Structure formats: C-alpha cells, structure tokens
Amino acid sequence: MQDIPELENCRLCEWQCGVNRLEGELGVCRIGRPKVASAVLHPAPPQSYTIFLSGCNFRCLGCQNWSIAHFPDTNETPRGYVEPECLGEEAYDVVNSREGKFLGADRIFFSGGSPTPSLPYVEQVVREARKIGDIKVNYDTNGFLTVDSLKRVIEFTDSITFDIKAYHDDVHRALTGAPVEPVLRNARYLAENAREKLWEFRILLIPKISVGEIKPLVDYISGIDPTLPLNFLAFRPNFVLENYKGASKELMEKAVRMAKEGGLENVDWSGRVGLPGRLSEKTSDKYENKGGEIAGGIAKEAGCVTHPRNCVACELEHECPIKNYRPAKKSI
C-alpha cells in the first residue's frame, strides 16, 4: 500500500480540515486511506468502467449511493484498497474488452460518494492505466473542491460531470450540509477555463425544494455561456428522503422550458418520474428560502442539530445522525 503524503494534512476539498488521515484522524468526510467501493461497466452517459470510491465530503439528504457515500458509518463492505497499478490495468482491460466495446465504453469514470477525498489515489490509477495505452477519463464531482484540486482534475481528465444541488446557500446547506459558494465558483472556473472538458452540469430537481433554484441556476449558467450543457435529473425517493415524492414529468418539462427561456441552448432532462411519496409538512425557521425551510425541517427531524446545516462546525460531526440514517426502503 502506497502512502499519500497529502493525506497527512488533508486540504483536498473546501472543508480544508487539515487532518492527518494516515494516522487515523478524520475530517468531515471521515475517510482514512482511499478505498474502492466497487467497479463496474456502466451504461449511463458517458459509457464507462465506473470506479466508485468510498466516502463523501457531503451529507446529502437524498443520496442515491448512501451506503457508499457514508462509509465508514454504514455496513457497506467496500472492495478496499487496490494498488493503483492493479486497478489501472484492470480498468484499461475492461474498457477494451469485448463487453466494454459492446457497451460502447471508452473511458474510466471516477465517482462515489465523491472521488475528491481520494484525488491523489485517482491520479495514481490514471497514470498507471495510461502507461498501458491511451484511455479517456471522466471525473464526477459535487463541485466542492479547492481551486488547486480542480486544476489537477482538469489536467488529467477528458470529461467532467458536475453536480450543482442548489443556488441559494441556505438551500444548498439544508440539502448537503455544505456552503454553495465553492461549488458556484468552481462551476464558473471550469466553464471559463476548460469548457471542452465539461460533459454537462447536472441539477437534481426535488419537488417544492428545488423549484425556487431553477431560475437562478439557469441565469447563473447562461450568464457564463448559453451553450453550456445542462441536464436536469428527476429526483427519486432515497435515503433520508425515502418517503418524499418523486419528481413529476410536468416539473421536468417546466425546468427545461425555463432553461430555454433563460437562454440556455443545450438542455434536457433524464430519470424516472412520477414515483410515489408525499411532500413534507416539516419546516425549519433557520432558513430563508422555502426549499431550505423544507429540507432543513427534514434534516432536523432526522436528528441534525446544527442549523443552518454546517457539517464542519457541528458538535455531532463524527456522530452524525444523517450519516448514520438507515432508510427502511430500498432505493428505487
């Protein structure tokens, strides 16, 4: 197992915890050494051999990969640490296998959770794969990187999928536990400095919670470049939001219409719509916008004690009731 000196004072993401992960100290992500959760050929565009890294620096209420993202606080048994040389060779071989070619896979796709707390490891895997031959790389991000980390990602990737959860800070905090400013800053930096690497921005639409975020996000993105690609993702009930109503087709079509009216030229939506559930009656008065009030109320009911949510300053940072939430339903 290779040591990664950067983890002795980890500042890979915007929490900049500064903990020594090699000695067992844990920051907001609560990840020690990087671990692979799983790796599989995946048909979602871009088609790829997707490597899921355990852990995440967000604590999202509606996480669809919660058992991976909230490692080590879940019962998920990850594949574990894989030597970069072995994983790089494996990824290269699978992408170029008969199965990979049949799927149309042409790249390695790093996801999670979030790959950012494992960024130096990801770089090692990419270097090893490219020692064998040319291969494309996609990096999936929640946008909560330092600028230096983002520059590193831009350097080794061919494509980047970039999620933006909300525009208003209070709504973003309610949904993720993190401030939105670094995410918007990085979205702009990527669009202005590496436009060719952006596969698409992705915005998850949650009924009631996200409605007030559509227009300001569209205005923000179109104000940078109206040709930037945007995909609205239909929320489906997951994790803490396991009983919440799924997005409707009407909501998705409304969002696309608003985006086009706002000047965006390359916009669509994807996902399953019309999944059953109910809208929450719980609200919190610690948030300014309606979406924040609803999401914050749900987080509070689930045991979150710091409002507006701010995971790095929470007294329960390492005993987080969100990370320890166990949904009664399987993800849809």
Rank of each mutant, 00 (worst) to 15 (best):
C86R: 14
V218Y: 11
V312F: 13
A37G: 15
S67W: 08
G271A: 09
H307E: 15
P72Q: 08
L103Y: 06
E155G: 00
D169R: 00
N266K: 14
E317M: 14
N324I: 12
T283W: 02
P237Y: 06
P308H: 07
H318Q: 10
P120W: 02
I154D: 01
T141H: 03
E301F: 09
T74N: 04
G274R: 05
R79P: 00
G18I: 13
S270W: 13
I209H: 03
G271F: 10
R107Q: 14
V183C: 04
T227P: 00
E200V: 13
N20D: 13
N20Y: 01
Y244K: 12
R11S: 08
I209Y: 02
T161V: 10
Y244P: 09
I221G: 04
L61G: 11
V267K: 03
N266S: 09
T283F: 02
I51Y: 04
L228W: 10
F110A: 00
A313T: 10
M1C: 08
G177M: 02
P229L: 12
R326Y: 06
K245H: 02
K249S: 11
N142A: 15
V82L: 13
E196T: 03
E14K: 01
P72A: 08
N65H: 12
N238G: 06
S149G: 06
I214M: 11
G277E: 10
A187I: 10
F58L: 15
P117T: 07
K101N: 03
L41K: 10
D140V: 11
